[in-house]
Amino acid sequence: MTSFSDLPILRFGVVADSQYAAREPHVGMNRHYARSFAKLSAAVEVFNGEELSFVITLGDIIDRDFESFDDILPVYDRLRHENFFLLGNHDFSVAADRLADVAARVGLASTYYSFARQGWRFIVLDGNEVSTFAPPEGHPYRDIAARRLAELRAAGAVNAQEWNAMPSDEQVAWLSDQINKARAAGERVIVMNHYPVYPPNAHDSWDRERIITLLTAHEHVAAYFSGHNHAGNFGTLEGCHFLNFKGMVDTETENTFAIVEIWADRIEVHGFGREDSRTLKLR
């Protein structure tokens, strides 16, 4: 007989960077855009065979063109589990007059939000908020983004790339408030964002340092999950785990996605295809 302690507290599915588009592959970059339809379909089939609390996609649902959503979103409709999205930079590779429609197209009333399950709070960020591509033309955040990018370039920062971005000061204040509310409620926290922050990489959020400082200061913050860097990455700082999931669009046939299990003392990541399996001990 299985005892209660032999079961995880909760389980959920993770997908990153499918970057679907009905277009020819970019062989030099190993991007197989159209193949993501079959890969995501296979992942959904696996998820539907499991008992999961939810599935979350860590951004870059499409590669380009607003019409790409019409092809790939029906694959998610087959999920028998609750489904969450956050947005990546490629989700805004659409015509300028469709930028304001992206969030609603994937069902987001707000581009950043949180939800709680079984004593855990999942805080979902909008890493594109201050960028040169996501805000509408003429929005003040575009000017702030241009200044921040120029600062980073002047400093020779590895993440001084126009395909990176960062949350606004207002959103980071909200994140801090969510972390404090979680502690008051006795909840542990996992933060999710498209952009990684650690270990240092060319794909990191422009404000990586302040996010790292905020997360590592709180013992109940267990992990930070991201996509964007398709090669994947992993590191631990002061007991907080930073896991960058690999990109589904890479490789012609091999898939990559994960099922994450939360236990009382650890997080177990069960990788499929190219995604690594790993055990993350809770501090």
Rank of each mutant, 00 (worst) to 15 (best):
residue 4 F to L: 10
residue 6 D to M: 08
residue 7 L to G: 01
residue 8 P to I: 06
residue 9 I to T: 08
residue 13 G to W: 03
residue 13 G to Q: 01
residue 16 A to P: 00
residue 16 A to K: 13
residue 21 A to G: 08
residue 22 A to E: 15
residue 28 G to K: 06
residue 31 R to L: 14
residue 32 H to D: 09
residue 33 Y to A: 12
residue 35 R to D: 13
residue 35 R to I: 01
residue 35 R to Q: 10
residue 36 S to H: 09
residue 36 S to I: 01
residue 38 A to Y: 06
residue 39 K to T: 00
residue 39 K to R: 05
residue 40 L to Y: 07
residue 40 L to K: 04
residue 52 L to Y: 14
residue 60 D to M: 07
residue 64 R to H: 07
residue 65 D to G: 01
residue 66 F to A: 03
residue 66 F to I: 00
residue 68 S to E: 07
residue 69 F to T: 01
residue 70 D to N: 06
residue 70 D to H: 10
residue 73 L to N: 02
residue 75 V to K: 02
residue 75 V to P: 05
residue 79 L to D: 05
residue 80 R to Q: 06
residue 86 L to I: 09
residue 87 L to I: 13
residue 87 L to E: 13
residue 88 G to C: 08
residue 96 A to F: 13
residue 100 A to R: 12
residue 101 D to C: 07
residue 102 V to G: 08
residue 106 V to I: 04
residue 108 L to P: 02
residue 110 S to I: 04
residue 111 T to V: 03
residue 113 Y to E: 04
residue 114 S to G: 11
residue 114 S to Y: 00
residue 115 F to D: 07
residue 116 A to M: 04
residue 121 R to L: 04
residue 121 R to H: 02
residue 125 L to I: 09
residue 126 D to M: 06
residue 131 S to G: 10
residue 135 P to T: 03
residue 138 G to V: 15
residue 140 P to F: 13
residue 140 P to V: 00
residue 141 Y to C: 09
residue 141 Y to W: 14
residue 142 R to Y: 13
residue 145 A to C: 10
residue 146 A to T: 06
residue 147 R to C: 11
residue 147 R to Y: 15
residue 150 A to N: 15
residue 151 E to K: 11
residue 154 A to L: 11
residue 158 V to F: 00
residue 159 N to Y: 10
residue 162 E to T: 12
residue 162 E to W: 11
residue 164 N to L: 12
residue 166 M to I: 13
residue 166 M to Q: 14
residue 167 P to T: 14
residue 168 S to Y: 09
residue 169 D to V: 12
residue 171 Q to L: 08
residue 171 Q to I: 01
residue 173 A to R: 14
residue 174 W to V: 11
residue 174 W to T: 12
residue 175 L to N: 07
residue 177 D to A: 04
residue 183 R to E: 08
residue 185 A to S: 08
residue 186 G to Y: 00
residue 189 V to M: 01
residue 192 M to L: 15
residue 194 H to G: 02
residue 195 Y to M: 15
residue 198 Y to S: 14
residue 199 P to W: 14
residue 210 R to M: 07
residue 215 L to S: 13
residue 217 A to N: 08
residue 218 H to M: 05
residue 218 H to Q: 15
residue 220 H to E: 05
residue 221 V to F: 02
residue 225 F to P: 01
residue 225 F to H: 09
residue 226 S to L: 08
residue 229 N to F: 11
residue 234 F to W: 13
residue 237 L to F: 11
residue 237 L to M: 10
residue 239 G to P: 09
residue 240 C to E: 04
residue 247 G to M: 10
residue 247 G to I: 03
residue 248 M to H: 02
residue 249 V to G: 07
residue 252 E to S: 04
residue 252 E to V: 00
residue 255 N to V: 06
residue 259 I to D: 07
residue 259 I to V: 14
residue 260 V to I: 12
residue 261 E to S: 10
residue 261 E to L: 02
residue 263 W to G: 00
residue 265 D to W: 02
residue 271 G to P: 09
residue 274 R to A: 09
residue 276 D to W: 04
residue 280 L to N: 07
residue 283 R to E: 00
